[in-house]
Design a protein around this nucleic acid. Sequence first.
RNA 1: GACCCCAUCGUCUAGUUUGGUUAGGACAUCAGCUUUUCAAGCUGAGAACACCGGUUCAAAUCCGGUUGGGGUCACCA
Length: 479
Amino acid sequence: MLENVITRFAPSPTGFLHLGSARTALYNFLFARKNNGKFILRIEDTDKERSKREFVDDIVENLKWLGLNFDEIVKQSDRSEIYKKVIEELLEKDKAYKCFCSKEKLEEKRQEQILKGEAPIYQGICRNLSKEEVDINRAKNIPYIIRLKITLQKITFVDLLRGEIDVVAEQLGDFVIAKSKTEPLFHLATPVDDHFMGITHIIRGADHISNASKQILIFKAMGWDIPVFAHIPLILGGEGGKLSKRQGAKSIGDYKVEGYLPEAINNFLVHLGWHSKTDKELFSLEEMIEEFDLKRVQKKAAVCNLNKLTWVNKFFIKKKLAGEIIDKINLTDFVIKEGDEYKAPNGIVYNKEQMLKIIELGKERANTLNDILKTASFFFKNFDYDKELLKWKSFSYEEIEISLEKIYKAFSELSDNTFTEEKLKEILDSLNSDKGLSYFPLRVALTGLSASPPPVEIVLIIGKEYTIKRIGRAIDKLK
RNA sequence: GACCCCAUCGUCUAGUUUGGUUAGGACAUCAGCUUUUCAAGCUGAGAACACCGGUUCAAAUCCGGUUGGGGUCACCA
């Protein structure tokens, strides 16, 4: 175990929490907890134009929903004093300078460079302005921004997953670190916070590899210790390309609404780039913490294939008790809850025990929480079906009708005491030599479907009265 | 375009550090079993080391190149 580990998840609140960012959060969380360290949520809202309060709320809410509890939340917009001090120090030490170039002029130069096939970087026009020149420009009120003065030739840093990475500093150009002394930009705010917050491990997406070199330049200019970097592989969409920028970039909130369980999402995400030493596939969050190891994280980008998510979700739904999920299911499309009663539009009133049994049946067949009642909607809604559906194998309509009439009669004769699972099965099993001739038409009569949970289970839930009614309706269709 | 990163079944991956495996698992697909249907479950099948060269008795594993994919090049993060 490492000492004093502090990690951070640093999203910009310019969008909802999506799968890619959630996985970054998960890895940071796992690594911190594994080492008994701290996990901090840092909202990078230096871009006032694009940052929105609703996104902050979404990120916080969904992180909590996933169980990725952070120890602290920090907003960059609350820390302007710190950035200001660093900017002033950098300026004072001549590690940074004011640039008076206009946006238009810069854009023109950029285009020229691109046309010439050169790297589109800043060419240092204001890099060596004298104090006098700067004062003149200031006196004229020409707007300026602040750039870092790059003096290093080569930047080398160690990535925990990839080893040494070399970057030619020239390639970077004197990039902008702040719009003004009070308006820091990403490349300044990030290293400043990482330093002052004591971040020991920067775990983030591989799209930040090239940013790392820029941020290291700040660390070096300030003479700070450089934290450990671990750039985790990107998650790609089905067609390749960054997930967050392409299709399929649904938010975690969307998955929640669609009926995915947080444990399913965590398990799906943890395997997008990481694998335990064993062949174990499904983990609780505690087990993940126990087994997680940054060194076993993949270097290759992972394509996000939702098949597995569905499978994982199904697994966890099946594992849960009906009582655990009844509160997570949106019942309003199916029943109106009044006290302990659940009133269905088809007239049946269920008690809680019956509702739980219905959920029990539904969850065996559901991919998502929302599927649970959908696959069992015949409990609640009126339905119709074609007479043809009642057919079983090559038996005739007459034979089907006779079978249903026998069931009708036998069920009608049962008293409440004998209306039990054993008795019902006994009747259905003995009625016809082909069991399906009893069960299948009964199934259709009860559900209007050719695929459903076992008919006897359904009968026991809706009760004798409604069972008889539905069988009678089927017989009428055959007449 | 320049720079950086990466490369095992369709997908997620084990194996690479310390060369020797019938290249393993999961999802998906297909088949069989079970069964009153579906789902589940069980059993089985097909399915991969990008290419070329080098080192070596031996290369998925080490080295070089090629190709391919991805990322970054903002007064966004």
